[in-house]
Design a binder for these strands. Sequence first.
DNA 1: CCACTAACGCAGCGATCGGTGCGATAATTT
DNA 2: AAATTATCGCACCGATCGCTGCGTTAGTGG
Lengths: 189, 189
Amino acid sequence: MVDAPAQVRPGGRSAKVRAAVHHAVAQLLAEEPAEALTIPAVAARAGVHPTTVYRRWGSAAQLLGDVATSRFSGDVVVPDTGTLAGDLERWLGDVATDLTDPDTLALMRATIGSGPEGGCACIGDRHEQLSAMIERERSRGGRTPEVESAVDFLLGPLYYRAIFSAQPASSDWARELVATFLAASEALA
Amino acid sequence: MVDAPAQVRPGGRSAKVRAAVHHAVAQLLAEEPAEALTIPAVAARAGVHPTTVYRRWGSAAQLLGDVATSRFSGDVVVPDTGTLAGDLERWLGDVATDLTDPDTLALMRATIGSGPEGGCACIGDRHEQLSAMIERERSRGGRTPEVESAVDFLLGPLYYRAIFSAQPASSDWARELVATFLAASEALA
DNA sequence: CCACTAACGCAGCGATCGGTGCGATAATTT
DNA sequence: AAATTATCGCACCGATCGCTGCGTTAGTGG
């Protein structure tokens, strides 16, 4: 995918166009079905000439990937409550809340459908955030579960419900998920 | 791939067209990116006139949903090994093997991206199959986990890896997943 | 302040997509 | 076997999509 912040000329104009186009993509996906996300439509909504979009992003798939990576990076802050349980509950609750928004889900679905790397773009820095919290607990001396199993049993159910289930997962449910995961990994250790 | 005979006129011709179109969709998704899945392209690949596809399915999204529900229904048989652990390991291993195929993943991704109900179409009858195995064990007198948590902790990680992760989940990994899930749900009961 | 050049807007061009009216074909019924 | 009707193929038509030279605008460095 195309790296956005590596623009050669980040002066006001390029950044403004980029922001407008990103906003237009999110807006269009929130209203129309994903197949209506065409370059001329995005350009018209953004108040930008289609040529600009064609030249900077090339295809709708690359544009979607760019929007997704921007959208799902730096959107959730890693908390520091002092305990791993507190950190995870707070963090996964925030992630779940984020996934409650139908427009966010629409962006995720469209990005997944845009190509094989679409899913990875939607994860953003979730794995690093999770790893950071677990690593911090480990440096505090606590016995921690593996990052891999945390991904499987925390992000797995959450994103599965978001994508494959009709009703999205609530923040409270995410917190319960953390509790049962920690209890189970403690019981099996 | 099982043909769903819910057609008004299931005589040889309609069924043949339907099968050809379904096959063409899977074939195109395996080769080209998802945005190339246009009705004329599908019709040409299927050796069918575009008008036919337009009239029977209307849009590419509906066609994708139809293909996905057919593809992900009746593809995995519910085993009967005598124990819940055996059944689940066998079944989830088969599901994981199915998800190993890149073409299957491409179909899933495209279907998810086609609309809000796309994800549900990819699940097919997984939930019913899971529920059937657990219900059977319950009728045998065993203490069983909840169907809901089985969905969360078995299908969740499996489909999460398939969609959001780069490396697909192996059948062996799926079997380990079943083992740890059953052990955890036993320990927490 | 001025040259330089990246980024953008404009006009326009094939190509193809989605859709419709009408006749032909084949499955089903009587 | 004849009638009926669902289904398909053909020809065709706007609309619009993806894309390309070319001139213009506006950030950037000397």
